[in-house]
Nucleic acid binder design. Sequence first.
DNA 1: TTGTGTGCAAATTGTTTGCATCACG
DNA 2: CGTGATGCAAACAATTTGCACACAA
Lengths: 138, 138
Amino acid sequence: MGASSKPKAETAPSSIRKTVQGEIIRTVFEDARCPLSPREAHVLALQIQPRIGIATVYRTINRFIEEGFLAPVDIPGVGTHYEAVGGQHHHYFYCGGCGRVYVIPGCPGQISAMLPAGFRMERHDIVLHGRCRDCAGQ
Amino acid sequence: MGASSKPKAETAPSSIRKTVQGEIIRTVFEDARCPLSPREAHVLALQIQPRIGIATVYRTINRFIEEGFLAPVDIPGVGTHYEAVGGQHHHYFYCGGCGRVYVIPGCPGQISAMLPAGFRMERHDIVLHGRCRDCAGQ
DNA sequence: TTGTGTGCAAATTGTTTGCATCACG
DNA sequence: CGTGATGCAAACAATTTGCACACAA
């Protein structure tokens, strides 16, 4: 939220440092093929460096978001996930069978046609729910 | 999740009773023009009956969902909201200015065209973000 | 050396649950 | 009356924050 209205002083750092933990977490998201939850990212980071705390993961994720490296992905019913920004425009498919989140490239047109008069759209999220190829059979 | 694998015994009630609190909460959602968060529903219910606890609101909402009266609406970045089922197919618009959730009737076609081969879609959610008519000017 | 980032634990916030009690049917 | 529903508080889970210390620059 805004940083200028809170009396909290919010001492914004004047420079960002490169740290071992930060780079590990960055790598975890870069290597991930799908959006990760903070917990998943933490587990993966722990496999590389067994001392990273969950608080560091959260703080680093938030820093990465401000930095523009990560973007939040909210899947209804599941906690917030995060993914590295960079690919082309895409959406998500959540499999109710295995719980995995798939990235779906592309986008249906006509989205802005839904917009009521006078409204301004800055962004849109589409999440499909169902069964992925592996889970569809059952 | 499945109800048969847990050793919890989950004593499912064999009948559902009509109570004062339940009817108040039902009315709150019926009268609402937009999806409500549990907290919002609680505040509205308290205006009618000042003794309703937040736990009752949650329990009642979950009962209504199983009953098919309510459906969850997840708006990225905001907590889960709930709305009365019944209208025609629609989606949502979240205003970053005033925080209100608007219902948008209609739906862009071509959604299923995004689906990868072998995947089965059971449902889709679309959330638009931006500024509503009231907030667009600023 | 300076000040940012980390670890750990406590604090918050949102949601669920245990238990004694209430009240619908 | 018997069982489902309620209130309150404690329990949980997810995320943030305070503080002392470690370590980039």
